[in-house]
Design a protein around this nucleic acid. Structure first.
Lengths: 115, 115
DNA sequence: CGGGATCCACAAAGATACTG
DNA sequence: CAGTATCTTTGTGGATCCCG
């Protein structure tokens, strides 16, 4: 069991293309219905959203609650284990802004280099 | 610009399937040759490793140094900007172990349920 | 020999239509 | 409303070849 074990386990759990974003939304907005989640993720497909949510439910990160009503109503929220990702998600969010600044500076340098 | 901007930027930069793992290795082991990196990532393809490294070079996370020798020698290391990921990578690594423990407990519960 | 480019087979992701 | 089913497109893995 090498030093990379932790990272590998994390990637298996939240390495999906949309998972960190979904988890971040559920963390900050609490319980959300399927449709609400979809509207907050403008570029995700219905099928993909279903996939990612089901996988995260299977992995114990997300709780799925189905109301037997017409029209149907399904709510999602973070499990206690899912909430333990708070630090990771906060750091990812913070570093993202660092990276945006970095890229804007790099862009400025390129502009200065053009004649 | 919503609350998700930071996460989205992070995913664009290090969302690749292997990137966090590669970055973690470069962070902890310093400069590595292509072949060394490949041996430490037993399940990655040569092509994939080349891809991910080139993308991260383009994004300013990794520095690529080519020695004009026979046999060829190419070294990779984190840039200063790449090193700013240290906190994110450390948290990911730590949470991974939390997640491994969580899954082992869940497994124990299932074992107890079997007759 | 080490790095990496190319071609092919397959799996994952996206778009769209349809259903309980 | 919250999904499924299906089809198309893109990405990944594997083997092979190239080049200095």
């Amino acid at each position: 069991m090498g030093r990379t074990t932790g990272i590998i386990a994390t990637l298996q759990a939240i390495g999906g293309k949309w998972k960190p974003l979904i988890l971040f939304l559920l963390l900050h907005e609490g319980t959300l219905r399927f449709g609400e989640l979809r509207r907050k993720l403008p570029n995700i497909t219905q099928g993909m959203l279903t996939n990612q949510l089901r996988e995260m439910e299977r992995d114990g990160l997300v709780v799925r609650r189905v109301y037997q009503e017409i029209p149907p109503k399904v709510e999602y929220e973070l499990s206690e284990h899912g909430r333990s990702l708070q630090q990771v998600l906060a750091d990812m969010c913070g570093w993202g802004f660092t990276h945006i600044d970095f890229m804007q500076n790099a862009e400025d340098i390129n502009l200065e280099e053009t004649p």
